[in-house]
Nucleic acid binder design. Structure first.
Lengths: 163, 163
DNA sequence: CATCAGTAGTTGAGCCGTCAACAACCCGCC
DNA sequence: GGCGGGTTGTTGACGGCTCAACTACTGATG
């Protein structure tokens, strides 16, 4: 969509934006992860799983759907759910209609953990990202990464494991 | 659905942008990392280290400076440089002026690896990110993450280990 | 109704990062 | 000139993800 004369390299403002993005992202995500761990004993991925479950009917989801909705590999979701089950935030249950299937069900404790963690986590997201940007810039960020996700997911639609 | 008391939660467009960012970023970075590994046998962090070294006088840098310039922890840089040294991309050398210091020096093989990897890596960055956005949107992204980095780094200026 | 390609999920080895503890060194100060 | 607090870099245990191989089940097809 851009690139003057379709050069091979990034020009210096592109380069600068790219480096800011990589560094900022690493700082941001590791900070949010650390805050969740220290204050609530869960990782960012675990938090995201709790959010998906809380939005789902009956607080339950098939493993594959959970994986797809987070763009995580199935293996990753298996491992994460195993840890969360050990911590009592979730339990597994064989799927009714499919003998291969497993559903992850959020427990009462899992729900309470999410309710506890959400306010300070959201505050962190605001403080370290959202409130630093103008509405327009933040909207631009949304547009860009919608497009990024779409492109990176196309060609492996529905059911393909991430990789 | 949102904003009881204006300002605690994200509104739905902010929420959507935030989720796009997290998912897009995870997809993007893991894709770029995998491409570098498969095509050139180095990780994205190793690539970034090679870039910094190549930009530095005499292709050498103090460990702490390397860590700061990437916002990586010192421990992380130690481990990464150890792997790169095993692979012959870099060697360590005691710093002349400071008995505690260590310099990482890019080897000839390291430089060749970077030169080999750069074109396809940059192509990936363009294809999966830069060329998907308008110049304005991409510039917005740069502004946002400059600000993010600044805020997350302030209060621990120069010499504080990342954590 | 037996076969078999495809799908769901798990497993464990290996890699890469964090964390906390640590040794070695620097330097301002009395 | 030796204290003592700060800095540099390393270490190893641990956690979490990837990858490839695996089991178990499904469902279309002859």
């Amino acid at each position: 969509m851009n690139s003057p004369r379709d050069g091979m390299w990034l020009d210096s403002s592109q380069q600068q934006a790219w480096r800011a993005y990589i560094m900022g992202t690493e700082l941001l995500l590791s900070r949010l992860d650390r805050e969740l761990r220290e204050e609530h004993g869960i990782s960012l991925s675990e938090y995201e799983i709790l959010v998906r479950l809380s939005e789902s009917a009956d607080h339950r989801m098939r493993m594959a759907l959970l994986a797809d909705s987070l763009s995580h590999s199935r293996s990753r979701v298996t491992h994460t759910i195993a840890r969360m089950e050990r911590d009592g935030l979730v339990r597994r249950q064989a799927a009714a209609a499919d003998g291969r299937g497993v559903e992850a069900v959020m427990t009462e404790a899992g729900y309470r953990r999410l309710v506890d963690a959400a306010p300070s986590h959201v505050r962190g997201v605001r403080q370290h990202l959202v409130d630093l940007a103008t509405r327009e810039d933040f909207a631009a960020l949304g547009r860009v990464f919608d497009e990024v996700s779409d492109r990176l997911l196309e060609g492996l639609p529905a059911g393909t494991d991430i990789r």
